[in-house]
């Protein structure tokens, strides 16, 4: 087994599981928030169901790519697509946090640096935590379609 297949296989399992958790919580099932046990992770917020569906799909794409073999360019493209999905969710999540933290309210136009930094601190959504881990998929960009 190739190293990248093992890596994305494990990542796919983890992302898929968290996606399932998000879908369950998004549907209103009484699943506890993992935040108390994992201080940096939170599975909550708006549009949780949709974010869960995206994570679950991305996890499935990673697993499928890893099991079918990443020497196949179409499987690498599938892994790249899953990573794009995670970057989209993570990107808008971080952007929302940042833009929500910058205005300083009625007294001043811009919040202090420490306030903005605090807003950007943990806990993070699963997509934000997964985003740097899936940067490895960028390697497939330079390899193009050739095996």
């Amino acid at each position: 087994m190739r190293l990248d297949e093992a890596y994305f296989g494990l990542l796919g399992a983890a992302v898929g599981l968290v996606g399932m958790l998000a879908v369950a919580r998004g549907l209103g099932l009484a699943v506890p928030d993992p935040q108390p046990t994992l201080a940096v992770l939170t599975v909550s917020g708006t549009f949780l169901l949709w974010r869960g569906v995206i994570l679950l799909s991305a996890g499935a794409f990673y697993l499928y790519g890893a099991t079918e073999g990443l020497e196949d360019p179409s499987m690498r493209a599938r892994v790249f697509m899953a990573s794009l999905m995670i970057w989209i969710v993570a990107g808008v999540d971080l952007l929302g946090r940042l833009l929500g933290a910058i205005p300083g309210g009625a007294d001043r136009w811009v919040a202090s640096g420490s306030e903005i930094l605090a807003a950007m601190g943990p806990p993070y959504s699963p997509a934000v935590l997964a985003a740097p881990l899936v940067l490895a998929a960028l390697a497939y960009r330079s390899q193009g379609g050739s095996p």
């Binding site: 549009f47 799909s57 991305a58 697509m81 999905m85 989209i88 969710v89 990107g91 808008v92």
Partner: peptide
């Protein structure tokens, strides 16, 4: 379709 959901969510 899952990718479209991600794009539209984004």
């Amino acid at each position: 379709l899952p990718f479209a959901v991600a794009v539209l969510y984004g």
